[in-house]
Amino acid sequence: MPSDGGPASASYRLRLDSRPLAVRAALAELADCPPLRALPSEDRDAAQILLAEILNNCTEHAYAGRSGPVEVALDLRRGQLSCEVADRGRPMPAARPGLPCPVLSLREGGFGWMLIRALAEELRYCHENGVNRLSFRVARTCLAAPDPCPCPRSAIPPESGCESAPRCCEGRTCSD
């Protein structure tokens, strides 16, 4: 149920089931909802990618393939899109040192993690009364990965491309 608002401000709420095909349908709906439609196409693409990764995380980790309710709230204010995703699945593991929040039951170095890290700002997580609540803003200008990376071209991740995807570097330094 979209609420009204001009191009600079709009809100949208959606409740969905955590199974993959329901997530796919929800993402199609969200791609076309007023807050996303009001964004420039680059930011809209970023929002779609981010929402997909966060919702996949609910499916794969919070509910571990089971069916369960997920709620998405999108709010666009002054061209800035804020998102909150809530589920009633397993809590995320405790945050690792140096990471802002424990989104990261996603494997470090995995593609999902790289995308979230590149596209989200102010990522916050809390678990309260059985509810996982993850909020973030979509970075407005996606400056991630602009520079050449010193990682060897051969740094191809092993199985399914996770674990050791090039661990660089947000365009800066390379630890490996």
Binding site: D45, C142, C149, I156, P157
Partner: peptide, 30 residues
Amino acid sequence: VAVMKLLGPDRRLELAALGPVVRKVFRLTR
């Protein structure tokens, strides 16, 4: 990526005609 590995070292997987979202995902993950 898994398909590329499936092909082994002697065969190449190449890609063509990437749309904006697909291109972004490839770029951000390097």
